[in-house]
């Protein structure tokens, strides 16, 4: 082998080693997979770094690939987990990960004052800083008597004027599964069929629902509190209501962020510290101010414009009941609603 070949091969080897070194560099680190919006979560993680000196290596999700990326990655990495913590922005995938044996229970001391409803009884996941489903409407198109119930999506007077996000993904899929749990399969299917007949438009995401309502392409739609709040903060001509709040109605779906420890993770102790940090009132306060995420702890102080979770009539179904309906709901939606 000639000298220049040896040199060339050595160079290639050197580059590869450098790459590996960069990624295997041992330091005080915690790896977190974050489904929560990067713009909101990143400052909080940086604060954790500052306070503890533990370097945070985060992997964020994009809304386009929402939960395809991180959850499938966690499942595929089962043999050699990279993540220590998963910061999810909803509950269903947390339950799925628990069922598939990806999680390790951890009862954080900071979780004691979180209501039981919003955490796993065996400490596999813990909820904090919640969103709720809302009906956002354009105030120029709808000047009075806005829709206030999920059933208004089937009202013929609103034919072709409503939109929802893809009901197979994200919080919308959870919402529909919750309807199956709350109403029963038959009534839920009937609701979906009527929505389809009423030409409810399906758009890419919750933020797109918001955007369509803002420009008046849709008069109203189903989205989450943080998306709706973004539009209100920018003084767009929209408002929102929590659906089905009357006594005889089914109530609204509350969706907390959830945080959990990954089984056999490389840095479990640092992972626990991060979980403890995320479950502090300070984090809930921050998320309340920047993203209108409602605190679950009573001790968290929030601005006046941020509603308390207790002020919203909640659907009378547990997250585990909703989880059991996910497959039924998704199958029906795929085969009947979206086809």
């Amino acid at each position: 082998m000639k000298k220049r070949h040896v040199l060339f091969l050595s160079f290639i080897l050197g580059v590869c080693l450098a790459f590996l070194l960069v990624t295997y560099h041992k330091e005080n680190v915690v790896v977190v997979y974050v489904a929560h919006d990067q713009d909101y979560s990143e400052p909080i993680l940086k604060e954790f770094e500052k306070q503890t000196g533990i370097k945070v290596k985060a992997l964020y999700d994009t809304e386009a690939t929402k939960t395809v990326g991180l959850v499938n990655r966690l499942l595929a990495e089962k043999n050699n987990p990279q993540a220590d913590v998963f910061w999810n922005n909803e509950v269903m995938r947390s339950i799925l990960l628990k069922e598939l044996g990806i999680l390790q229970p951890y009862c954080s001391p900071n979780a004691k004052d979180i209501p039981e409803f919003y955490k796993d009884p065996e400490c596999y996941w813990t909820g904090f800083a919640a969103r709720a489903r809302v009906i956002i409407y354009n105030t120029e198109k709808i000047k009075e008597n806005p829709p206030t119930s999920i059933f208004d999506f089937t009202d013929p007077k609103w034919k072709g004027k409503a939109c929802i996000a893809n009901p197979l993904l994200g919080t919308t899929s959870t919402h529909f599964a919750a309807l199956f749990a709350a109403l029963g399969d038959e009534k839920a299917k009937e609701l979906l069929v009527k929505m389809k007949e009423n030409d409810v438009k399906v758009v890419e995401s919750n933020s797109m629902v918001r955007d369509q309502v803002v420009v008046g392409e849709c008069w109203f739609g189903l989205t989450d509190t943080d998306d709706a709040y973004d539009a209100i903060r920018e003084e767009k001509p929209v408002s929102f209501v929590f659906p089905d709040q009357k006594n005889e109605q089914i109530g609204d779906l509350i969706i907390p962020n959830t945080v959990m420890l990954i089984k056999n993770s490389p840095h479990p102790e640092n992972g626990k510290k991060l979980i403890d940090f995320l479950l502090t009132p300070e984090v809930e306060e921050k998320l309340a101010k920047i993203a209108l995420q409602m605190p679950l702890k009573n001790s968290t102080s929030v601005p006046q414009y941020v509603p308390r979770v207790s002020s919203i009539k909640r659907m009378n179904v547990s997250y585990y009941q909703i989880f059991e309906k996910m497959n039924v709901s998704n199958q029906f939606i795929q085969e009947n609603f979206l086809s």
Partner: peptide, 16 residues
Amino acid sequence: PGLQTISLRMETLLHY
């Protein structure tokens, strides 16, 4: 973990 590409960032920004 710890790295990001511009395409991922743009998709995220788009959806926000």
